[in-house]
Write a protein that binds this DNA or RNA. Structure first.
Lengths: 215, 215
DNA sequence: TTATATATTAACCAGATGGTTAAACCATTT
DNA sequence: AAATGGTTTAACCATCTGGTTAATATATAA
């Protein structure tokens, strides 16, 4: 936990605290008054810098998506094995979620309310990136490996969704998983769990797309 | 779309419409007045049958969980192959989500706000079922198969989380997946997508846990 | 120092929201 | 038909909430 960053300009300070208010309560649950108190400014000041709750919410979402997608796009371009690439992907995705465990909460809010705001400020040029059949780094990597016979001939989009899904559930499902562990009197250490999880996902995927043994 | 069920008693009618109001807007976004209008009753009547917004919300969550878990527990007990069992599990989970595509939205709301209400009314005796290391049908099935050498020696809890995660993302990610498809000018048919998805998940998992080839 | 533009605040407001009340309605029993 | 008890409603209320206003404090330029 860092100390309050007194150097942040007021507008950014407000944004910073707005992010956390929206994360904790979602759009409808968030209160402008709370944001003001968190940022230790008068509520009117928020409306001096931002025009409405709606606008500040959109800006919050925009920042979060930008932060996440910048990191996700941070994949090495160097040629490597299928196994290494899968490990890289899982690593990067997981590390983002570990660094910003709360961001995903807001994305879930968005998705569960139909992702309307997200669609509106469409960062899917960005999201398109990893998924995109044309030009997506990840897509073209796997495409090459399939042609080279280094992995099974699978639907690459489905593969990416599967990888991402296994990772995402590790975070959004945490409250349930934790409760399930505890109600079975098993210890639950989140760090250990996520480490195990990472290995499991990589192994399952690798074995799942390994080419048939040649005889 | 069925016609309005005039035989429903008033209290159930209110509950029915409350479910959909909460699904569409989440706890904070839901309005008692809206529920009243949906159910075509006076708002005061809601408070005649239920004591507060909070209480009706909890009852809504309880119903949803019950509905879902009853279905999930509907797995055949007959002995079968690993492949068939995985297919069964994916089938059952997916069919529940297909039948109640909205229910998951509310579960996401819950999870993203820390699942506090859910924890409180803890149906994880129920949720424990499939996950539980002791007594869980699914768990003990895989346990038996591992001992019999019919599948790899994997962490069964991780396996279940992976299967569930791949399924859940297929639904909560739909808005994003759809947008990604469309922004790449690819047709998106949800039925076809989910069919492909089912096969993909089954294949990936089956191949992922297949025992090493014996030489 | 004074004028000017920017930053910040206390007080305020209209509309919305969860919840209440007292009266009316309706079916059943006597 | 009158009494009874559950059901439904219109009107109401206190509080909360996003947003405004007008005045004040602070920094900058002249």
């Amino acid at each position: 936990m860092k100390k309050s960053k007194i150097n942040l300009k007021t507008k950014d300070k407000i944004m910073h605290h707005a992010i956390h208010e929206f994360i904790e309560h979602g759009y409808h649950g968030a209160r402008m008054q709370n944001i003001a108190e968190r940022a230790k400014v008068n509520k009117a000041l928020i409306f001096y810098y931002y025009t409405s709750k709606d606008q500040i919410y959109k800006e919050v979402l925009g920042r979060i998506f930008k932060t996440i997608f910048e990191r996700l796009n941070n994949l090495s371009d160097e040629p490597t094995s299928v196994e290494n690439k899968v490990r890289q992907i899982v690593d990067v995705y997981m590390s983002v979620l570990i660094d910003y465990p709360d961001y995903i909460k807001l994305m879930m809010y968005e998705l569960s309310s139909g992702a309307n705001t997200v669609k509106e400020l469409n960062p899917f040029g960005a999201l398109g990136m990893p998924f995109s059949p044309m030009g997506g780094k990840i897509y073209s990597f796997f495409d090459g490996k399939i042609r080279a016979g280094e992995m099974k001939q699978v639907d690459i989009i489905q593969l990416i969704i599967s990888i991402v899904g296994q990772i995402i559930i590790s975070f959004i499902g945490l409250p349930i998983i934790r409760t399930a562990f505890e109600s079975n009197k098993m210890d639950f250490d989140i760090k250990i769990f996520l480490e195990k999880r990472k290995d499991f996902i990589v192994n399952l995927v690798i074995n799942g797309i390994k080419p048939e043994e040649k005889i």
